[in-house]
Simulated assay, not measured.
Amino acid sequence: FMVVAITGYGMATFEGPTLSLKNVNAIAHFTDWIIAHVHVGALAWNGFMAFGIIYYLIPRLFKTKLHSLPLANLHFWLGTLGIIMYALPMYVAGFTQASMWKQFNPDGTLVYGNFLETVTEIIPMYWMRAIGGSMYVIGLLILVYNIAVTIKKGSKVEDELAEAPALERVTKKRTAGEGFHTWLERRPIQLTILATVAILIGGII
C-alpha cells in the first residue's frame, strides 16, 4: 500500500508544477485532466497511505493478527486497478475536451460551439471512471469488514503504562563547543520568538 501511496505522491507532486507551466495549463485548464490529477493524489497518496497505516497499526493495537491477508490483498488490487481505471480515462477525457474546445471554423467560430458536444464525447470515459471508483469503494468496504473482525478478535489493553527513558541532565561537558543553533534548539520559547521575527521580516520584504 505504501509503495502505491508514494508512487501516487510522486506523480501528483511532479504533475502539479508541470501544470503551472503556461503551455501545459493552456491544455489542462477547465478539463478533466485536473480531476485526474487531484484524484491520483487523493486516492493513491492519501487513501493508500491511510490504508497501509490502518493495516499495520490495528493488529498491533489490539494484539492480534489481521483477520484475512487474502482480503487485504484483494483490497489492494481492487484499489490499485480502481485508481488506474479512474484516472486514465480522465486524462483522456481532458485531452479530448481541450482538443475539441480549440477547434475553429475558418470564420473564427468554434467547431464545437455547444458544450454538450464535448460532454457526450467523453461519456465512455465517465463510465470507466464510475467503474474504477466503484472498485475503489468496494475495496474500502473490504477493509472496513477486515478491520472490524480483526478488532473483534483482539483484546484492547486498558491503562497500559507508558515507559520512556529518563532525560539526560544537560552538563557543561555536553554543551561544550556547541554552536548557536544547537543552543537555540534546546530553548523552544526563544526559538519560537526568533522564528516568528524572521517570518515577519520575510513577509515585509
Rank of each mutant, 00 (worst) to 15 (best):
G154C: 07
L110H: 10
D159W: 06
I147G: 02
K153V: 02
G154M: 08
L143C: 04
K173C: 00
S155G: 08
T150I: 10
Y91W: 15
K172V: 09
P106M: 05
P124D: 03
G132L: 01
Y136Q: 08
I147S: 06
P89N: 08
N105Q: 15
W101P: 00
I151Y: 07
I138H: 03
F180H: 05
K153E: 15
M128A: 10
I138D: 02
A162K: 09
L140Q: 05
T118K: 03
A176C: 01
V149L: 07
F104K: 15
G94S: 09
R187G: 01
E117H: 09
Q97I: 13
R186P: 01
T120Q: 11
V170T: 12
P106C: 07
P188W: 02
R174H: 03
A166N: 07
H181T: 10
P106H: 11
F180A: 12
K102M: 15
V157H: 04
W183G: 06
V170W: 12
K173F: 01
K102T: 15
A130F: 13
G113R: 09
E117M: 12
G179N: 13
G94F: 09
Y136F: 15
A98M: 11
A176L: 07
V111P: 04
H181Y: 09
F115V: 15
G154F: 08
E121P: 00
N146W: 02
G179A: 05
Y126N: 11
T182D: 14
L184D: 03
V144C: 09
T182I: 04
R129P: 00
V111H: 05
W183Y: 12
L167K: 12
L116I: 12
N146D: 14
V170G: 00
A164H: 14
G132A: 01
M125Y: 14
G179Y: 02
L184N: 04
E163M: 13
A93G: 07
I138K: 02
G108T: 09
T118A: 14
M128P: 00
W183T: 08
T175C: 01
A130M: 11
T192W: 05
G139C: 04
I189P: 00
T120F: 13
W101D: 10
Y145A: 09
G113H: 06
N105W: 04
Y91V: 14
F95Q: 13
P124F: 04
S134P: 02
V157Y: 00
H181N: 11
E185V: 07
E185D: 10
M100I: 11
E121M: 13
E168W: 00
V119K: 08
I122E: 01
L143H: 00
E160V: 11
P188V: 05
T175Y: 02
I138T: 04
M128I: 01
E121I: 00
M125P: 00
R187W: 03
I131D: 01
L161G: 03
L141N: 03
T182Y: 00
R186Q: 09
I189F: 05
I189W: 02
G177D: 02
G132P: 05
M125G: 05
A176T: 07
R169A: 13
Y126A: 10
E117P: 00
D159C: 02
P188E: 05
S155E: 13
I123Y: 12
S99E: 13
R129I: 01
M90Y: 09
R129K: 10
V157M: 10
G108V: 11
V137Q: 07
I122G: 03
G139I: 03
I131H: 01
T150E: 11
